[in-house]
Write a protein that binds this DNA or RNA. Structure first.
Lengths: 203, 203
DNA sequence: AAGAATACATACACGAGTGTATGGAAAGTG
DNA sequence: CACTTTCCATACACTCGTGTATGTATTCTT
């Protein structure tokens, strides 16, 4: 085969990553070969080994195309100027995260990470999930503590328990939705649950 | 090798399943070979292929040694004579499930099912999780509807939303705990969260 | 415009894992 | 006490996937 222009080469690289998303999601990471990925992108294994060192490298490249939603959730919660209303800040951060995850690429990659890959090379999805969960819990605890100081929380509800309840609820919702996203809309059901939970927690 | 007595043969079968639990949990299902399982049990692959048809059959046999806690959770919640207090019935059913899952074998097998195996042969772990989640949601909806009829729920809180919140919270808690169970006690944290959530929901 | 680098396709060697076939010694069975 | 069956080890053939080496037409460089 002949050499292609730089733009074409970049396009085949993206096509390989797209194909990897498709087949990883369908068959799981461990059960898919580089041959299957290449064929699904209309290429051969030669293209894969030119653009990526091996399967693990390709997997990492696939992850780099999306950012973790919870990280952005924490970021955007900090950036939102609602520091005087921490509970509303939590709500808006959740809605931001929901709409991010509804984008097909985000949804597919996260579904692969959480439900379709095992420990794999030097990538440990469970460790990544643990980090994300811990970050989320810390961020939520801060916001609920702030809310408690302002007297916004129902009496008898500590900020630690509130943060734990909220984080578990969010995690369960994400797992449910990623398992089969066509059953319900994440934004609709997510905001309904978030609003209900915050309403229960408000003084 | 020589033939062993029936009891000894059954013991080696259990030893093979124990070894499978260990290595599946450590390395993931896809990355473990039958050779590794056999060696970890002090046997060879001949023993594995005598007791099981293949890897998928061994996996199913491993699953059969534990039963789904949610099914039994619902059963025992029905059997408990707390029909006049649905919220307390939910609490007790959850505590039953927590103590079940704290048993090492239950914890290990469920951690494997949820976090350490992909789609695999004719076994689809995600489908199993979907079934369990659906059953749980239906059961919870029934109990919360009963509670709503009795006026036990806070006004403005529908039984569907209450069930959704509770199921997501339970699911998130399970995923968190199964990811690394040494971080906290499921019974302690679980009952704390369940009590807090039910307290928020009570009228 | 000529050499060098690029972007793949093709071909090959290699190991790892699987499934099966065979062997054999002890346990059950009558 | 023969005789069959059981329980497992060993050995072999086979497939699948990987990694690398090589070829090659084209694009980029100067």
């Amino acid at each position: 085969m002949a050499r292609k222009t730089k733009a074409e080469a970049a396009a085949t690289r993206e096509a390989l990553l797209d194909a990897a998303e498709d087949i990883f999601l369908e068959k799981g990471v461990a059960r898919t070969s580089l041959e299957q990925i290449a064929r699904h992108a209309g290429m051969t294994r030669g293209a894969v080994y030119w653009h990526f060192k091996n399967k693990c490298d390709l997997f990492q490249a696939m992850l780099l195309r999306v950012r973790m939603p919870f990280e952005e959730l924490a970021e955007e919660a900090n950036n939102s100027g609602l520091a005087n209303d921490p509970l509303s800040a939590i709500r808006e951060a959740c809605r931001q995260g929901f709409s991010r995850l509804e984008q097909p690429r985000y949804q597919r990659v996260h579904a692969i990470l959480i439900h379709h890959c095992e420990v794999f090379g030097d990538i440990d999805p469970l460790a990544m999930q643990n980090e994300i969960a811990e970050e989320t819990l810390v961020a939520l605890t801060g916001y609920f503590a702030h809310a408690a100081d302002m007297g916004l929380l129902r009496q008898g509800l500590s900020s630690e328990i509130a943060a734990g309840l909220f984080q578990s609820m969010l995690g369960g919702l994400f797992h449910d939705w990623l398992r089969n996203h066509q059953r319900f809309s994440l934004i609709e059901r997510g905001t309904a649950l978030v609003d209900a939970q915050l309403s229960l927690m408000r003084a």
